[in-house]
């Protein structure tokens, strides 16, 4: 069930390219536990974020400069639909459910 451990992906990105906008749903062929690369990147960043109010959308963008805002937004929407993350102080701050 739980995907153990602090999966901290050190720094931000490295890979450029792969500019396809992830389609939500559909037959998932994601690399890790059913998430796309973008989704797991976003999730890992949120998981790794220490502050109680959660990671802001702005913060996400600056951590993932290679992704454009709509891709990040989609990932966030997806993760929140799945229950992996939830919004905190406002709709722009997110925390992971399996953090703590």
């Amino acid at each position: 069930n739980k995907s153990s451990g602090p999966l901290i992906t050190g720094n931000s990105v490295g890979a450029s390219g792969m500019g396809d906008v992830g389609s939500l749903g559909g037959s998932a062929s994601g690399p890790t536990n059913g998430l796309t690369l973008h989704q797991s990147q976003v999730l890992n960043l949120i998981k790794a974020y220490p502050k109680p109010e959660g990671l802001s959308f702005q913060e996400l963008r600056s951590q993932l400069p290679s992704l454009n805002a709509s891709v990040i937004k989609q990932a966030v929407d997806f993760l929140s639909n799945e229950g992996h993350i939830y919004s905190t102080v406002d709709d722009e701050h997110f925390k992971s459910t399996d953090a703590e």
């Binding site: 069930n1 929140s80 639909n81 799945e82 229950g83 992996h84 993350i85 939830y86 919004s87 905190t88 102080v89 925390k95 459910t97 399996d98």
Partner: peptide, 20 residues
């Protein structure tokens, strides 16, 4: 703050449902 707790509870619920 109450809102955050609600969001969290809802999220955990979604997560649980998906793994049910």
């Amino acid at each position: 703050l109450e809102r955050i707790e609600r969001n969290k509870a809802a999220a955990l619920l979604r997560l649980a449902n998906r793994h049910a």
